[in-house]
């Protein structure tokens, strides 16, 4: 029974599928036009996508829909499995995501396409039974496309978020040159493992590039320090020393000093100063160090 029923469904589906494909084939440009117009009317797009871009997307996607319908793939898997169509849908959603369009605009785009397709089929037949099965088919085809489009859109947004948080990490950990051979890292905000690793990498690279001999890590702007962060700071100081430079930590505020003492973390081997300016004056003394500076002007 199941087999017979399945056969009947699929055979009538095949008929509807051919009808939709044929109806579209004669009206590819028309459908694409209509779709673009519908999207512009919806005005849900924030303007990041131009009309010519819309038109190009529409041409590609409608053409891909036709070849998708011609393929032997089951109707609800055409969008996800037909290479050409899949690419057209993912490209469209990725562009929307990267262009900063809202999820609504992206979802409405697919819904508008449904409308454009139904209109095209309506022009090709007046039979209500045929129209109904065509509408069902279009629904199943575009629901697949809608799901894929949403997945891709979310993936695209996540990619942007990941990139931004990486950029933020870079921006939030600047290494600045404070004096000849002296670098400073003013840390502001909460420190975690990822951030301290970026600090360490940037600082060591800057030490090598600029041949700095003293690095000052200023933690005035760091609200709290826990065991993990203190250990990361120790690691950073040790890595700086391995490079052959000195490291000073400045701006340890009283509550943080208390926490460090209570946690039993030994910072005694680390050079610390109350303020950044104290640290800088110490650093300048260190760079003057045992090296005679013949080209330094006599000040006194």
């Amino acid at each position: 029974m199941g087999v017979v029923k399945g056969f009947l469904v699929s055979s009538s589906e095949a008929v509807a599928r051919k009808r939709v494909a044929d109806a579209m084939r004669g009206r590819v440009e028309e459908i694409a036009d209509r779709w673009v117009r519908l999207q512009v009317q919806q005005a849900a797009l924030s303007g990041g996508t131009s009309e010519s871009e819309l038109r190009e997307e529409a041409d590609t996607l409608v053409a891909a829909l036709v070849t998708g319908l011609d393929s032997a793939l089951p109707i609800d898997r055409v969008a996800s499995s037909h290479t050409e169509l899949r690419r057209a849908v993912t490209d469209l959603s990725m562009n929307r995501a990267r262009g900063g369009e809202s999820p609504t605009a992206t979802a409405l785009a697919v819904l508008a396409l449904k409308e454009a397709l139904l209109e095209a089929v309506q022009e090709s037949t007046q039979d209500s039974g045929e129209l109904f099965s065509a509408a069902l088919l279009i629904n199943r085809l575009l629901d697949g496309a809608g799901a894929l489009s949403f997945d891709t859109y979310v993936e695209g947004r996540e990619e942007i978020i990941r990139r931004q948080s990486r950029q933020l990490l870079e921006v939030s950990t600047p290494v600045v040159r404070l004096w000849r051979q002296v670098l400073g890292v003013p840390l502001i905000g909460t420190l975690d493992t990822a951030r301290t690793q970026v600090v360490m990498e940037n600082l060591l690279q800057a030490i090598q590039d600029q041949e700095a001999t003293v690095a000052i890590i200023d933690i005035t702007g760091v609200p709290t320090v826990d065991t993990a962060v203190a250990q990361h700071l120790m690691q950073t100081v040790n890595a700086v020393r391995l490079m052959g430079a000195d490291c000073i930590i400045s701006g340890i505020r009283p509550p943080i000093a208390q926490t460090i003492a209570q946690l039993g973390i030994d910072l005694s081997t680390i050079m610390t100063r109350a303020t950044l300016s104290d640290a800088l004056s110490e650093a300048i003394k260190l760079t003057a160090g045992p090296l005679p500076t013949p080209d330094a002007p006599a000040v006194r």
């Binding site: 690793q197 700095a212 690691q235 391995l242 490079m243």
Partner: peptide
Amino acid sequence: VAGMRPPVAITLVELGIELVGVETALNAEQ
């Protein structure tokens, strides 16, 4: 011991090695 590369320094401290007693310099000149 002069000229340790930054990635090497990072990896060493993560390994837990401190090179006790070893003096380091940024490069051969220093």
